[in-house]
Structure formats: C-alpha cells, structure tokens
Design a protein around this nucleic acid. Structure first.
Lengths: 263, 263
DNA sequence: CTTTTAATGTGCGCCAACGTACAGACGATA
DNA sequence: TATCGTCTGTACGTTGGCGCACATTAAAAG
C-alpha cells in the first residue's frame, strides 16, 4: 500500500516550507500567495497543548513535520484519542465551523513544526467561499470519518489491532519509520493501560514487525502490521485519500484553466 | 435539566410541519419560504436504511418526529452507533461537506416523519453562504462532538452507563417518554450483546428509573437516569445546546433588524 | 563513572462483558 | 383459543483487559 501522505523530501526537513502541509500545498497560487505572509512557522514540542476543552482557540495550526492528537479526557482521568492530525490536515476546524471551542483537547504527539494562522484570518479565508473552503470542508469530513471509526474500533477491536492501526496511521504522517514516543503515551492515545501496550508491542516484536526501544518504536515489516490491524486503518486511509485526492484534481484543473486564461 | 429540544406541541404531531425540525424552524422567513416548496414530507418506518456506506446519497432528511442512527458495521457484523439525529439536526451532512458519501450508514431508529430535500438543492442553499450555511456548519460540529464522545464513552464506560446516556439523548429527541424499541435494537446501537441490555435494563427497572415491556421502554424517573449516566450525556447535550442556541439568538437579531428595515 | 530518573517488563488476582444455550412469555395472526 | 414467531430472562463457563505491585533496565544528569 502507498503511504497516506506524499513523503516530504528530506531536504525540506531542514528547509521548512508551508508546502509541506498538503492543504496549503493544494491551494491555487493566488490563494497561497495571499495567505503566505500570515503564516507563522512555529516549533511544536512534544506534549504541548494547543487548546483545552471549552477554551476559545485563537490559532489554527497546519502541521508540517509534527503530529497532533485530538482527544478527550474524562472527569476520572481516562482518555482516548478521537483523531490525529498530521501534514494532511489542520488543527482548529472549530474556528470556521462556528463553534470556536470544542469539548476535546489537542496535544502535540510527535514533535516538529507547524504553520500557525490567526483564527480570524482562517475564518475570513473560509468565507471567501473559494477553493480553500472546499478543501477545509472535505478535510473536516475526513476528520469525522476518523472520529466515527474510533468509536467503532474502541468498541470492538483488540489492543493489539488498535496499536497496529495507530502505528500505521502515524507512520503515514511521517517521513521516517521510526517514531519517538513512549509506550505510556501510546497507551494514553489508545485509552488503555501502559502494560497493555508493553504486551502488544512485545508480541509484534516477536513477530518481527516492529522494533521497540526505550522511547522509540520503529517498523521493520509494514506488511505484517497491515495484516495484524483491523479494517479501521484501511477505512480511514481510503477515506482521507478519496476526500483529498479529489481536491488535488480540482487544483490541477483550476491551474490548467488559469494557464489557459493567461495564454 | 431541560430537554435538549424544545418540545413540539402535541397538535403538530397530527399536523406535520417543517417547523418541527429545529434547523428549518431557525431559518429566516425568506430562506424558509424559498426552501418550503422543495421540502417533501416522507414517512420514516423503523429500520429503513437512508444510505449505505460508500453509496452516493441523493437526499438530505430533516427529521421531525423520527430519529435516525448513524452507525458503522464492521466486516464481521459488529456495529456501533456514532451519532443520533433527531429534530435538532439533519441527515446527510456529507452532501454539503463535499464528500457525498460516508463510510457509515444511516438507519431509522424511531419511526416518524421527516422532510426530504434534494441533495443538490441543499448544496446550492449551503453555497449561498447565508444563515443556512452557518446553521449547517454549527450542526455539523455538534455531530462531531457526538462522534468523539462516542469514541471515549465506548472505551471507558459501562453498558449500564451507556444505556442511560442513550436513553436520555433519545428521549430528548422525543415528545413522549415512551420509546418503541426492542432490546435487540438498543444492543446493536450500543454495540453490545442483547443480554447485556436485558441485564442493564433490569437493574434500572429495579431501581425504579425505567419501565421495560416487550418492545417498549419508558422512563419513570429521569433524575435517576441522569445520576446513573456517565458525563458523556451532559457533554453532548451542552454542546448541542451551545452550538444551536447561539444560532437561534442570531435569528432573533436578524429578524429584529429586518423589522427595523421594514419600519 | 556513578547516580538518578523515567521507561519497560512481568506476574497475578479480579471483573465486566462475551458467547452460548435454553426457557419462558408476550402478542400478533389464523 | 391455539399457534407461531419474536422478544425477553436466566444461567454459566470463558476471556480480554484492568488494577496493582514490583523488578529491571536504559538513558540522562551530575
């Protein structure tokens, strides 16, 4: 299977560009140029909380090399991830959906960079009702797919299956196949005990699919993981691909028609 | 606590009107008048499937007295509800979000009526970028809240807690406090065994909170249910209220300004 | 190189929910 | 009122994952 996201070129890692984010990269030149001066490159350290439940959010974040986890924490401290956001998306859809807050929180799960945009500007851009609006709406639907799939997956699939799903979706958002993350953190994403991850990861390692070191997990046999995961991985991946591939098509046709106009 | 939805007047039950749906009712007179001739009253019998996964949907449905369940069914036949839609919302948000299909299905969970609208017309209306767009986006965010809450709730809360949550949310979408539904069907909504519902319902009945007959469940002590449910009920209810109450405000201010203009 | 701190591995009793099987009981239809 | 299909109640062994306790080890810090 192909990766969920087009792999960034290595050079970009050291030469950050908003184009590393697929939504920004998909914008027609005109829209992109208008937005560019407003985009602020920010470092996203592991564990940073981008917004808390009910808190008015001020910025949207377009991840380039970081990954952000959207999750809910119960009154008793249990938590569960409802969706992840990498370079295929944007954190802060509530800014243009109209709610301005959500009941869940957003935390940096893999350190890296993102481009930050003032929430009011994002809303303005959305209200132009152009390509960007289309893009953001489609992305939001992809987010909904992840959420509803999480509901089913949490209900019916084993810890090991869910770990595979999570690893695959996370890898698809990365360049490397090495994740810098503790089992403790993975456990809180999946909403299970840390010991459950130790055990599941142990099994996957015995099977030769992954390599697990203190604070690191790397995949050595992707096909193996794909066989061990539940259908949820495929459903989410396919749906993200469908919703955003379509958008890329349109960009091509838009720029094609622009080229025609300029001839 | 108040109900999630404004109770419909009994008389409306026998005199169906699009205004029984809160989204339609919130529209400014002009928008409503434009839409009215396109709205088709349809009966929604129990169990009817409105759309299947991946299937191109043709219509949106604005429930008045029916309730629709959005859920996902796994390859092995397990299912779980990701959100419910009653007279507070609309079925078919993918029509304006741009995807046109979803990976989940929509099934009538409580028989009743709905107003059906051609998908292209809904999209057109959405693209006017007026009040309706605002409304639909806010509603969509409420839907996302339900989905992400379902993910957490399925992960961490007991069958009995989830049954209470489901009963309360369903009742909030009804006039009566009597539901016509089998335990089997409730079980498939919550994604548990039928016997699990029998047991949980038995406990709630012993506690004097509900009354369970063959094919019927009715609530006799709402406060009791509210004490037995998990926080998820409150979170979802509050979020729906916040997102849609705000919209009603604006409608009032819009019609106020219209009145001024007409003076 | 030591110390300290945080991450990982392992074991064990426990319990909610599962799968399965079957008995009753309601209510529609003949 | 008898029949039949469906819904509901009960029972029981099984199990995945939990909570807890503690040992071990890797990395960072002194």
């Amino acid at each position: 299977m192909n990766q969920l996201t087009t792999p960034n070129e290595k050079s970009l890692q050291f030469n950050p560009s908003p184009n590393q984010n697929h939504l920004l990269a998909a914008l027609p030149a005109q829209d992109f140029a208008r937005l560019l001066p407003m985009l602020e490159l920010v470092a996203m350290p592991l564990g940073q909380m981008l917004y808390e439940p009910g808190q008015h959010m001020l910025h949207a974040y377009f991840p380039t090399t970081c990954i952000v986890s959207l999750h809910y924490v119960t009154a008793s401290g249990d938590s569960a991830e409802t969706a992840g956001v990498g370079n295929e998306g944007v954190v802060g859809v509530a800014l243009f959906m109209g709610g301005e807050t959500t009941s869940s929180s957003a935390v940096v799960q893999t350190a890296g960079n993102a481009y930050r945009l003032d929430g009011r500007i994002l809303k303005q851009e959305f209200n132009r009702a152009g390509f960007m609006q289309d893009l953001l709406l489609r992305y939001t639907q992809a987010l909904m797919t992840q959420m509803s799939q999480a509901a089913t997956c949490n209900r019916h699939h084993s810890v090991e299956q869910r770990l595979c799903r999570w690893l695959l979706l996370t890898l698809d958002r990365c360049d490397s196949n090495e994740l810098v993350i503790t089992q403790e953190l993975v456990a809180s994403m999946l909403g299970v005990r840390r010991e459950g991850i130790t055990e599941a990861a142990g099994n996957l390692q015995k099977a030769g699919f992954i390599n697990s070191r203190r604070g690191h997990m790397s995949v050595s046999n992707r096909a193996g993981l794909e066989k061990s995961t539940c259908e949820c991985y495929g459903v989410v991946k396919k749906e993200i691909g469908r919703l955003l591939a379509d958008v890329r098509h349109r960009q091509e046709s838009v720029s094609a028609s622009q080229r025609q106009l300029l001839q």
